[in-house]
Nucleic acid binder design. Sequence first.
RNA 1: GCGCCUGUAGCUCAGCUGGAUAGAGCAACGGACUUCUAAUCCGUAGGCCGCAGGUUCGAAUCCUGCCAGGCGCGCCA
Length: 555
Amino acid sequence: MKNLVKDIVQNAAQKAFDNDMLPSSQMPDMEIEAPKHDSQGDLSTNFAMVSAGIQKMAPRKIAKALIAAMDPVDFIDKVEVAGPGFINFFLRPSAWHPVVDQVLAADERYGASDFGRNEKVQVEFVSANPTGPLHVGHGRGAAVGDAVGNILAFAGFSVSKEYYINDSGRQIKTLGTSVWFRLLEMAGRSIDFPDDCYKGEYIKDLAGRVLAAEGPDFVNLSDDAAIAVCARYAAQQILGDIRNDLASFGVAFDQWFSEQSLYDSGRLQQTITDLKALDLVYEKDGALWFRTSDFGDEKDRVVVRSNAMTTYFASDIAYHQEKYERGFDRVIDVWGADHHGYINRMAASIVALGKKREQFQVILVQLVNLLRGGKPVQMSTRAGEFVTLKDIVDEVGKDAARFMFLSRSYDSGLDFDLEVAKQKSSDNPVYYVQYVHARIAGIWSKAAEQNLVADKDVTRGKNLHLLVEKEEINLIKILAGFPEQVQKSAATCHPHVIFTYLMSLASAFHVYYNRHKVITADSSLSQARLCLVMAVKKVIRNGLALLGVSAPERM
RNA sequence: GCGCCUGUAGCUCAGCUGGAUAGAGCAACGGACUUCUAAUCCGUAGGCCGCAGGUUCGAAUCCUGCCAGGCGCGCCA
């Protein structure tokens, strides 16, 4: 619709120039948009205002000339100049009816596009260390990363979702130590449990499982050997739990990438060799430093410590190089806001090794405030007391949790109230939207009982010309806007755009539902309305799917 | 001290690649079920868009400086 109107404007501008009503034929960078108020028409363009400089004329004069040059079009009711020079188009209902056909025909692909031109994008998210269960923050990161991946894919990007497993290094050893000491405690030894070890209950649980698997003689092993066994076993178990929790949360990764594999394959050593060959590193105080400050970082960073161990940063450089070698044009990392200090050095390393800055993007997800009935839930990671993602999914359900995580821009902190997320009421936005889907399903089953619709798989609308009510046209306008919202969401990597869209579509439907009966005595009109609400149902489903939320037939 | 994010209705937040009269939910008050699901809808009330400058025909939106809150500034990961 917007493109149609744009063509009309451009043709009129050309014609006005040909007739000497406008001095220049140069087209400005105009916008066609839906105005805020009904009195301002259905669509509006700022053509005249942005042309003022080109035409050297007052905007309202340009607008008048343009309208005068416009050919009459059957679906346009009237065109007028308003405000500082907006040109407002008032459309007839018939202008909007084809949208319903488009939705029904495209079905689960309605809203999809080739906007991304198949560009290969990798989205890496969660990537929590396998040293403990996922918590609320990971939940928000998981919801965001997964939704961004879905949205980019829907918008025509070739997307791969990946989880980076930090299964190497000190924290895994700490995990092994933690389990080992708990195990010794169980075996009756008196142990001073170290302060820097993990203290959660799950560690004791793991210790019990190791003991059961290895047998009573296990406690006689040397510390080093036992810790290695415990570490391997515990990391494996925890990773398995993480996979299960994410699966329950509706998140599926295309790839799980092990940090340890970078050591095993020699990829990490290769990266160090490359850095030396390119003179990007130097030695100081016995350590090897990367000249990241030459590429926008605040200071240089150590990649090999004076004890010959590589840093986490070194693994990450190798890992990101490996990503680009796999052919990704763009790499998106989803990180918690507390890691923002890491962005510049990562970006610097990527630029230093020959990629463009735009090929690396970090989505920083701000922190989650977990509340219960408006009061903060006290958590202490150190003491091992925290609400896990699994706890939340068990308590409020996958759909409510995901919808809540995606309801706000990740640039803002998020208040997540367990009581609200659990409520099956209007306080809870997920039901507001899902209810639309279920209501329409209900209407359709009633219609089927009355044999109103012969074919449930409608691929185009019937009697659409009968849709003339204000609420019906409004609904169709919103349906027409879905593809654009998907693109906006993809272009900005902001899933809450879809959330906001769904809320407005759901609201428009509820208004319509309360004011008009879909099934009436008039079977032709009923059919037309059934097609309209079916289109709404499909768009709700498509939008929810992007956010990883289900669309129930019944509630 | 430096960096990132945030500041919009009583509360939680949309709107931020500049446009017309700044929106929604919750909370408050008053209404609507013999009807396809009241998990809904309608109405009322509620605003120096943190403050001060600047750019512009036009600023919640862009720039600068303040103020306030959150987070971060390791040869940790």
